[in-house]
Every structure is written in structure tokens, then in C-alpha cells.
């Protein structure tokens, strides 16, 4: 019989990992978001360990009495999840680097259209113009020029509008 009482230390660690992960996920910079996702992923992996019950003997049939073995299934799943997280992390890092190459920042931006609507609302204009009077600036151009909160020293076109 595997003891299913959760280990308090692990539970607290999971809580801390998730808290920090969620906090970082809400940041603007993609590299911080990445760290947040890694923390969340590790929290989920620890959760699997807790889900497998208390630690036991190595699960090898014939070497150990069967009642004392650790549950191998969650360990296999954690391994899979770790590998997947590794691959995703590598991809996100590459994306953050590419973004830095192109724009000198790795910011995850707001929806460009949300931004445009908010700007028009601030100027008290109708949000949908039939004649597309802003067509001088397409959404793509607006996106390239836009910066959100991490624009230290960058030209602040967006400010004050």
C-alpha cells in the first residue's frame, strides 16, 4: 500500500513555484515569461511526484517486494514532461533572441488592434471608421513602432497619445 499523504515540503515548494511562475508570466519581457513558464513546468512536475504517492523502493519487478515499490508511472510521465519543456524552452529562447535581433527588445506586445481601439477611445473618436482613415498606418507598421512598458530610453512614440 502506497502512502498517499502528500509531503508538506513538496506541496509548499509547488505553491511557491506556481506563485513565482504566474508573477513572471505576467511580465512584458519574453525572457522573463520564459523563466515563468519553466517555473510553472517544474511546479507541475513536482505535482506529478506528489500524485504518485510517497517515495518507495526502486520499481524493478523481482528485486523488490511489490508492496514497497514507488509508483513508476508518474515518473515516466514527469520524464516526458521534462523533455517537452526542454524543447519548448529552447524554442522560446530562440524566439526571444530573434526578437532582440530584430527590435533590440524581446517584448510580448499587446494586441495591436486593442491598442488602436483604446487610442481612438481616448481621443473620443468612433472606434470603427467606415472610410479607414488611419489606413496610412497599417496594423503591421503600428506593431513595429509600438512599445509597451519596458522602453527604457527608447523613443516613446506611444506615450502621451
Amino acid at each position: 500500500m502506497i502512502d498517499m499523504t502528500p509531503n508538506l515540503v513538496l506541496v509548499i515548494t509547488i505553491g511557491v513555484l506556481f506563485t513565482a511562475g504566474v508573477y513572471l508570466l505576467l511580465e512584458r519581457s519574453l525572457s522573463r515569461v520564459l523563466i515563468g513558464i519553466i517555473l510553472l513546468g517544474n511546479g507541475a512536475n513536482l505535482l506529478f511526484l506528489v500524485a504518485g504517492g510517497a517515495a518507495g523502493r526502486p520499481p524493478i519487478v523481482g528485486l523488490e517486494p511489490e508492496g514497497q515499490m514507488a509508483d513508476p508511472l508518474p515518473q515516466a510521465m514527469v520524464l516526458t514532461a521534462i523533455v517537452i519543456t526542454l524543447g519548448m524552452t529552447a524554442f522560446l529562447l530562440a524566439m526571444a533572441y530573434r526578437s532582440w535581433q530584430l527590435h533590440r527588445h524581446d517584448e510580448v506586445q499587446d494586441d495591436v488592434e486593442d491598442r488602436r481601439i483604446a487610442r481612438r477611445a481616448a481621443r473620443d473618436e468612433p472606434t470603427v471608421l467606415g472610410d479607414d482613415s488611419e489606413s496610412a498606418e497599417t496594423l503591421d507598421e503600428a506593431a513595429a513602432a509600438a512599445r509597451d512598458e519596458t522602453d527604457h530610453g527608447a523613443p516613446a512614440q506611444e506615450r502621451g497619445r
Binding site: 508570466l25 513558464i37 510553472l40 513546468g41 507541475a44 506529478f48 504518485g52 519548448m88 522560446l92
Partner: peptide
């Protein structure tokens, strides 16, 4: 897209862990 997709994956993983528990 990537950040949202990864977030949903983490949620799914948490759900699976709890289902297993």
C-alpha cells in the same frame, strides 16, 4: 501564440497530475 499555448499546456499537465492523484 506560443506563450498562451504553453500556459494551456501547463494547465493540462496540472489537470493530469491531479487526475492521477
Amino acid at each position: 501564440y506560443v506563450v498562451v499555448a504553453l500556459l494551456s499546456s501547463v494547465l493540462f499537465l496540472v489537470a493530469i497530475a491531479l487526475v492521477y492523484a
